[in-house]
């Protein structure tokens, strides 16, 4: 599944932080997601064993929440807020423009693994609508004409 072998050593540290029981599952998965930027399959199998949770349930939780991903993201992760305020201030056009420029697959991943685009619901920064988050950094007032620059496709952007 995974293109390269995953180093599972960091899991020991993550698992040591929480009691080895079912109720630790989400916290552990959050830390795993933060470390690897996704949930590698071997890590899920280790977590299931370590917490004594059936693998099927671990997968159920891992696929339920939008905050988790089972596939590695691109080099830069771009979240386009589609919440109500962003929506009425032009977020759909921003998303369309971004989609047109970098042409990702249906999951929002580009073939060169450079970008992952995700349309998300309200990120809680409505005053700055429309909001685009690039690698965790919030950008406000991003119109369709500015989005290429914001994600680093044109001069003056951050990501490159």
């Amino acid at each position: 599944m995974d293109p390269v072998a995953v180093d599972l050593a960091p899991l020991d540290g993550i698992l040591a932080r929480y009691p080895a029981e079912e109720s630790s599952l989400i916290q552990v998965l959050q830390d795993v997601q933060r470390h690897y930027r996704y949930l590698p399959r071997p890590a899920l199998e280790r977590v299931a064993k370590a917490l004594g949770v059936p693998l099927a349930r671990v997968c159920s939780v891992a696929t339920f929440y939008k905050a988790f991903s089972l596939v590695p993201p691109g080099e830069h992760v771009v979240h386009v807020c589609m919440g109500t305020a962003c929506h009425i201030r032009g977020a759909p056009q921003v998303l369309d423009e971004l989609w047109r420029r970098i042409a990702p697959d249906a999951n929002g991943d580009t073939a060169d693994r450079r970008f992952t685009i995700k349309a998300v619901n309200c990120v809680g920064a409505c005053a700055a609508a429309p909001v685009v988050i690039v690698d965790g950094r919030y950008h406000g007032g991003v119109q369709a004409t500015k989005v290429a620059k914001v994600v680093g496709l044109e001069e003056g952007g951050r990501a490159s």
């Binding site: 599944m1 899920l44 693998l55 099927a56 349930r57 997968c59 159920s60 696929t63 339920f64």
Partner: peptide, 20 residues
């Protein structure tokens, strides 16, 4: 006891399936 299957994903994509 085995808990070998569960629901995966959610919303319109939700389905019963074994892990992976």
């Amino acid at each position: 006891g085995p808990a070998a299957i569960s629901t995966q994903s959610r919303g319109v994509l939700r389905e019963v399936a074994p892990p992976f």
